[in-house]
Each structure stands twice: as C-alpha cells, then as structure tokens.
Design a protein around this nucleic acid. Structure first.
Lengths: 348, 348
DNA sequence: TGGGGGCCCGTGAGCGTTCACGTGAACGTT
DNA sequence: AACGTTCACGTGAACGCTCACGGGCCCCCA
C-alpha cells in the first residue's frame, strides 16, 4: 500500500491565501474542502464515533491533500492535561548526566509527561537562557543550576523548580540530593582500613561543596594529616581535567598514597597522570572515584568508586515535580537523597 | 531581598471557583484582582510600554498572589513561531547517542527551537509510542527508528521526519547518514596494510546493514578469505554484547588475526574477551572499532576506530528539519553524509 | 399513522492570549 | 479657545480546536 503521507509531508505550507502567501491548513480548510463541518473533521481525525465511514474517508483524504495537522496549541487550550517538564543538563558529554536524563525520561514517560531538554554546557548565562525559555514552555523545570536561588527565582516566573544535587540546607527550592557524607564515610573507611593516611583530593571546578566537606570531615574523624592544602581544584570535570589536577597535586604533595576524585572522570585522569609519573596504581597510589560510571570497569586498573544510582536520581526528581504539581509537600531530607555505595575494584 | 515567588510557587492551583474546585489563574483573574483590563495585565507581564509603573507593580503583585502564569497554549495560538522538534534516541546509556543529541540541542538552540526528547530504549513498540505522542506535540521529528517506512508513516500523521543513519536508498524520508563505505575503505586498508587477511566482524543486533555490507565489499576487494561466516551477531550494542560475540567468533574462527567491531562498545568488549582467552591485542589480534567514543582512548590498549563527528550528525539533522520546514528540498547524498575518519591508536 | 430511538451531522460557545484599534484625560501649542 | 499629541488604558476580534448541544433523517414497532 502506497501512503500519500510520506511524499506530501516534505512540503510545508499548504493553503493559498487571498494575498498569495501560504498558511498552514486549519480544520476549517479541511471542512470546506470535504464539504462538511469542522466538527465532522474533528471526528474523523480523532477517530471518534458518530461518523459515516465514507465521509470519514473523504475527510481524511482532504486532510492529506492539504497536509493538515491539528494545532497543538488549539488542542492544548481545550484539552487539559498535557504536562511538559523542562530538563536542564550541564554537560551531555559527561556520561553521568545522560543516565540521570534517562531516569527523568523514564519516569516522565510513565506519567505520560513530556520532557524538553536543554544543555547548559556549564555556562551560567546559558543556564538562565534555559530558564527564560522553559519557564514559558514547561509546567515545571528540573535540572542542574549553579546560579543562586534569587537569580533562579527571577528567571523562573513562578514555575516550579526541582534542583538536582543540592541538599535542603543549600536551597529553598525542592531538590534531590546525593548523600555525599554517607558516601565518603564508606570511601574513607575503606582507604583508611587499607592503611592510607596521606590522602589527597581532586575537587571539581565549583570549589568547596558537599563532597569536599564530607572528605574533610572524614579526614578529621580519622585524625589524618589532611587539610585544604591537600586538595587541588580541577579546571574541568573531565579526564583531562583530572590529569592536569593530578600533576598539580603530585607537585604539591608528592607523599600522598591515595587520592579521592570528585568524580570518576577526574579519577580516571588521576590514574593516568599518576602512571605517567611512574606511580603504580594501586600499589603506590590508590585512587577512588565518585559516580560509578560504567567506564570505570573498562579502564586499567578498574576504578573503585562511590557508585550512585543515577537513574533513580532522575526518577526522584520527577517524583518531586509530581508532588509540586499536585500541591503536596515535596520530599525533604532522607527520602529525597540517594546514597552512594562503595564499589571496590582494583584501583583502591 | 526576599522573593515571594520561591515560596508561593510550591502550591499549585490558586483560584477558588463557585463550585469549590480550584483552577489555574488566568489573565482575567489577575485583571479583576488588580482592577484593570486583560490587556493591561498583558502589558505588565510582558513588560511592554504604555503602562504606568505604579499600576504595573500592582498588576505584578496580583499575579504573584494568584500564582499566575500565562498559558503557553493560548500564547502559542496567537503568537506564531515557537518551533518544537521531537528527538528519539534509542539508548541513552550508549555514549554515542548523547553526543548526537548534544549536536541536535546545540543546533536547535541556535535557531531558537525546542527539543522534546524520547528514549525508545531500542524497543520498536516504544518507538511507535514516541511517534504517536510526538506527532501531536512537535513540528518535526528526528531520530533513530527501526520500523519500516510505512509503519513510520502510519504513526506520523504527516509530521516531517528526519531519519538518523539511513542512506537515501534505504528510506524515502529525509535522512542523515554515515558513509560506512568510505569508513571501511580506510579501516580495511589499514588492516590489510598491516598484513591482516583473516579478518572477522562483530556485527550489531539488527543484522545486515551498511557496515556489514561495506565490510564484505572491502573484503572482496582485497580478495580476503572472508564471507558471512566470518561475521557474528552481537546480542546487544554494549561491551557485554561484544564480549559474548567475541567468544562466539573465536570459537567459530579461531584463526582470525583481526576483528572489526560494529561500534566501539562492541570492539572494547571484543578486546576484553580476546585477552581473557589469552590473546594479546594487538599482537595476536587487532581490533578496530567504529564510532570514535572518547572512552576508546581510556581503555588498554587504546582503541583504533573509525571516528565519526557525532555532534555534526545531530546538527545536520536539524539542518534537514529546517529545510523541510521552509519547504526547501532536503539534502540528499553526500551533503547529508558524515564520513568517518580512521583514528589509529594501539589496538590495530 | 404517529412516535420513539438510533444514526449522522452541524451550530454556538468557550478555552486564554495577543493584536489592532478606540477612548478619554491631561497637557502644550497656536 | 480650539486643536493636536501623548499617555494610560480598555474593547472587540481572532487564533484553531473541542464539547455540549440540537436537529434532521430513516427505520421500526405499536
């Protein structure tokens, strides 16, 4: 069976107007061409009952001829219930975020919601552009944002927002967080248990955050000779960033025996840089990551890491949106946190 | 400065109706509360001119009180120009696709378009669900689809479609393809140039496609003792799939000296399986991938691969959409193809 | 022969905005 | 004193669709 659709859909506008310009066909155009009323056209395209099969076919033929497609706006006006949420991701190249996105998409699909996605590329200005646009087009927004609360509020225009990876004390918006403290408790226990006391950290670009805080807290707890000077900032959250950071850290603290990376990418970079400097991993230097990317299993040696369930993070965020949407109180505290789980492989 | 927004936005509906139920506030509610006309409210929220600063403030205050947000549907009705395209990705866990998506998002953002995303998870039914939904909500759709043209057309309802990675001879829709032939010409030349003649292939789940075709063509060209029996299908496009496939291929053809993987993930799996079997890579077995994922640089040995510019692929797809949208002829042939580039690293 | 009940189909209203006007007041100009 | 201008704001219409009706028509049974 040859379908007319596939051929006709390539040309865009379809109805000639008095002034010569072309315009998308409306339900009225179809009705006129088929010699019926708008309502009958509506019945045909939405295949509801109460229509003669013959006229239905005639109407559909007319619709095909005019390349008619119902306006989603007009439809949305009268049929309530299409929910769209915006999703703002900082960096699609970092394998962490696609997985979070997958969780969001999965949960959204289950609820019959749609997700319009935006890549802020770790740029604060683009992040605000995202808000400006999405606040007009979405019923709620979830995502990663660097901007402070008041800036967000200004660009939000009253649209509900769910922040990813911010603790309740860090924002007055609804949020879904990662329990860095619980994660580092496991991680540091493991490192210390293996005899390490001189432990460095490669922190992310944003500087002091929960992960660094938890790291220092654990260091104090075990009485390690570790303070801020054992921490190096990486210029970017990538393997290259980790390599550069590690070079720097090794210069500053040549005597470290273990290093904790802000995320797996950085940790992998750290391993590479260390080996280039002639240090064996894990014998001379243990490396612990954070995130649990699947690429950690692929590198040599396999990366020990604090694994977090990224899909769950995304699903939780959608859950939060649902609560805001229904007027319920958003989850606060432990329910809205995902706690990392130590995965011991070869690197530490 | 304390913003009212951030607090109020948490509760959802706002206007009490005669029957007791609650309803989202409309521009009319705000107008009534502020004691002005709809038009003045419109002027205030869109901050256009011709309004007294004092009344503007009064109106905005009323809007805040009612948690008023303009309906995107009503707006879309009267203000034309918001373009939304649907993006259907088969598997967000495969690092290849997020990068394509990044290209799509980038190009869409430049044009001021929005992208609603859908993860079909390599499921043909979900793929059609995606079409059913997106055909109602998007002005065009781009993505990966397994379904044949006529099925697609049936679920498309006339919405323009741009297929990713299908050659012009494989579909009557607009498409953006990968020049597998050109890629494999480089790849096989390299392998043969290194002395290999017994070359196997780990193909993807979908069976015979352009990559396999090009592989066999090159094998014939060089007169290699290679036919379909040197090809093993992998159950999934993942490292695990590649490992399993490689086991099988080594059983069937223990004498191969090189193998070409359908994609990098499979190729990495192949390397791992081969090494587990005691074969050194590349000395005993050369491995060549396809895709150019950045994780290829991270594994041991680093993966040689046919690199493709995935972002460009995404950008091209948006370009195609733009053409369809403007009524122009879509790109056909070479302009709509991205050609792989051989990147020689350690594995081959 | 009248009336009840399916079937098809059309009509008006309304969804929430914005746009193109129109209006009245205040002010300055000749 | 009459008139044009500017400013601040309001009024009807239109956007494209669906929903709740209402109205013919034909058939069947009393």
């Amino acid at each position: 069976m040859h379908s007319v659709w596939a051929d006709d859909q390539q040309r865009e506008p379809s109805v000639e107007q008095p002034d010569g310009t072309r315009r998308r066909a409306t339900i009225h155009d179809v009705a006129k061409l088929a010699g019926v009323s708008r309502q009958t056209v509506s019945r045909a395209v939405n295949d509801k009952g109460e229509i003669d099969p013959a006229t239905k076919e005639r109407v559909l033929e007319a619709a095909r001829l005019l390349d008619y497609r119902p306006s989603r706006f007009a439809r949305g006006m009268v049929r309530k219930g299409t929910v769209t949420t915006g999703l703002v991701i900082p960096d699609l190249m970092n394998p962490f975020f696609p997985e979070v996105a997958a969780g969001v998409l999965e949960a959204a699909e289950q609820r019959g919601w749609q997700v319009v996605m935006w890549d802020s590329r770790i740029d604060e200005a683009r992040e605000q552009d995202a808000l400006d646009v999405l606040s007009h087009q979405a019923d709620a927004i979830v995502g990663y944002f660097k901007s402070p609360d008041d800036v967000l509020a200004r660009h939000l225009g009253g649209v509900p927002l769910v922040l990813l990876e911010r603790g309740p004390q860090q924002t007055r918006f609804a949020a879904v967080g990662i329990d860095a403290a619980a994660g580092l408790a496991q991680g540091m226990a493991h490192l210390v248990g293996a005899g390490h006391r001189r432990i460095g950290m490669l922190d992310g670009v944003h500087g002091p955050g929960p992960r660094r805080g938890a790291f220092l807290q654990q260091a104090r707890r075990y009485g390690l000779p570790v303070d801020e000077s054992w921490i190096t900032l990486c210029a970017e959250h990538s393997v290259a960033g980790g390599e550069a950071g590690m070079e720097q850290l090794l210069d500053a603290r040549p005597d470290i025996t273990a290093v904790f990376g802000f995320n797996d990418l950085i940790a992998v970079g750290a391993m590479r840089a260390a080996r280039r400097r002639g240090r064996r991993v894990p014998e001379d230097l243990a490396v612990l990551g954070f995130d649990g990317l699947s690429l950690g299993e692929l590198v040599e040696p396999a990366l020990s890491t604090l694994h977090i369930d990224k899909r769950r993070l995304g699903r939780l965020a959608v859950e939060q949106v649902a609560r805001l949407h229904s007027g319920a109180e958003p989850l606060r505290g432990a329910e809205a946190w995902v706690v990392p789980e130590l995965v011991v492989r070869a690197s530490a």
